[in-house]
Design a binder for these strands. Structure first.
Lengths: 233, 233
DNA sequence: AATTTAAATGTAAGGTTTACACTTAAAATT
DNA sequence: AATTTTAAGTGTAAACCTTACATTTAAATT
C-alpha cells in the first residue's frame, strides 16, 4: 500500500501545553518537564512525544497527557502545527501542539515526579527548548479566545467553585482586572450556574457561596441557539 | 544528527483550500483539482503535495499555491493538522491544511488548466477525497472568523471595489443577508476605506463609487489600539 | 418627459456595556 | 456583649452600540 514511495518521511511529534490554575496563588501554571535526553538534556520543555503508528494526532496527545498526569478524558484542543526545517536540532520533526486544561489537584503526583514535571507560573516562565516558548504564547492566546466563547474555564477549577474564584481565574487568564459586579451579572445572567447551599469559608469570614457549572442546562441552551459569551471589562 | 532513530517517520502533506470570489455570481468558490493519480484518481480533491526536505510547512503551502495559480505572496493561513491513521488509504499521511484568499482574475489560467483545476461554488461542492470535505468545512469557519476581525475580505476583491461588492462578498461568506445601511455605516466608520472619484457602471445606471482599502491607514490605526471588527447583522 | 433601476442615505428604539460605592455576614478582638 | 475587621454581595444611570426600517438620488432607457 506504499503508493508515495519517492517522498521523504519525517518524525511527527505532539507537544502538550498543559494549563493548570493555582487557586491559592491565583496564577495560571504550565506543567513543564526537565528534559532527560538530548538534544536539550536538562533544559525545560513541554511534554511531548512522537506519534505512534497506530494512533491519530489526538490519540498521541491524550497518551502523552495520560502518561504524565494519569488523567483521561481531559479537555484538549489542537493549537497549531510547527514545521520549520530546523526547529529541532536533533532531526527534522514536525510538531503539532495541543493545549490541555486540567484541575491541578486531580493529577497523579507520583507520575509527575517520576517524569521530572513541575508546575511553573506563566507569569515567569523559564526559557524553553526549540520553539516551545512560541507554542506557549500561541496556546495562551487560544485559551483567552476559548474561555470567552465557551465555558471551558470550569475545567481548571474544582466542581464546586465560588464566583470570586471564577473571576480570579479569568483575571489570571487575561492578565488584567475585571469589574466584580459586571462579571457576576454577566455570568449569572447566562443561567448556567447552579447556586449551592454551601459556602467556601477558607478565605473569608463571611464565606462565599459555592456554585456548580450546570452542563445539562448549558447543552440545552446551546441547542436552542444560545452562545456562551463572557466579554469581560 | 539522527537522534531519534527508533521512531516511525511519516509522509507529511499540505492541502490548500483556495478561496476565490466570483463577483458576478456573488459566490465563494474553491479551486479544486481532478486528481491525476491514485489513490482517488479522477476524483475531486484540494490542491496538495508532500513537504520537501528543505521547506517549512508554510513554504510548502506557498509552493503548492504558486504551482497552481502562478501567484506569490498571497494571503495564506494555517487551518488545521489532520492525522487520523487511515485518512489516506495510500499510506499514513499527516496533512496540514492552509487556506488562501485570492482574487480570481489574478490567477494564471494556463497553469490551472494544465493542472485540471476548476473553480467550484462552495454552495454546491462535489464530494472530495479523503477528509478534504472536512478540511473545507473547517476552513470556511476559519474564514468567517477572520473576515470579522481582520480586513482580509479585500484579498478576494479587486483593488478598486464598491461597497455593494464588499457587502455581497460578506453575504456570500456568511451565507446570509446583511442590512445595507448598517453595513455601510460600520465599514465606513472605521476610516480604512478611501473613496475614489470614479464609479463602477457595469451593474447599474447610476453607478456605484469605487473605494480602495487604505492599508497604511489601517496599519496606523492598528498600532494605536484599533481593532477591525465587522460584526454584521 | 417619463420611466426604470440600483445606489445612497438617517434616525429612533432597544439593548448592552461600562463605571461606580455601600451594605452584609461572620469571625476575631476587645 | 459590643466593636472591629474582612471579604462577599448587590443596583443603577449614562454612554455606547446595534438593530430595524423607507425614501431620495443619479443616470440610463424608453
Amino acid at each position: 500500500m506504499k503508493l508515495y514511495s519517492k517522498y521523504t518521511r519525517y518524525l511527527v511529534a505532539v507537544d502538550c501545553i498543559i494549563f493548570g490554575y493555582d487557586i491559592l496563588e491565583k496564577e495560571i501554571k504550565l506543567l513543564l518537564i526537565k528534559r532527560s535526553f538530548d538534544p536539550g538534556k536538562g533544559k525545560w520543555s513541554l511534554a511531548g512525544g512522537f506519534v505512534d503508528e497506530n494512533e491519530s494526532l489526538d490519540d498521541a496527545a491524550s497518551r502523552i497527557l495520560r502518561k504524565l498526569t494519569g488523567l483521561e478524558s481531559v479537555y484538549m484542543k489542537q493549537s497549531y502545527a510547527y514545521g520549520e526545517t530546523n526547529r529541532d536540532p536533533g532531526d527534522r520533526v514536525i510538531s503539532v501542539s495541543y493545549f490541555a486544561l486540567i484541575a491541578i489537584r486531580d493529577i497523579n503526583r507520583e507520575l509527575t515526579q517520576q517524569n521530572e514535571a513541575h508546575w511553573r507560573s506563566i507569569a515567569r516562565l523559564p526559557d524553553l527548548i526549540f520553539d516551545h516558548s512560541a507554542m506557549v504564547k500561541k496556546a495562551l492566546t487560544d485559551l483567552q479566545g476559548q474561555v470567552k466563547i465557551r465555558p471551558v474555564g470550569f475545567e481548571l477549577l474544582p466542581e464546586k467553585l465560588t464566583l470570586v474564584q471564577l473571576q480570579a481565574l479569568y483575571e489570571a487568564i487575561y492578565q488584567r482586572e475585571i469589574d466584580k459586579r459586571n462579571f457576576r451579572k454577566k455570568i449569572l445572567s447566562m443561567g448556567i450556574l447552579e447556586k449551592l447551599d454551601e459556602k467556601e469559608k477558607e478565605t473569608s469570614k463571611k464565606g462565599a457561596y459555592y456554585y456548580k457549572f450546570d452542563k445539562d442546562k448549558y447543552d440545552k441552551l446551546k441547542q436552542s441557539g444560545f452562545y456562551f459569551n463572557l466579554d469581560v471589562n
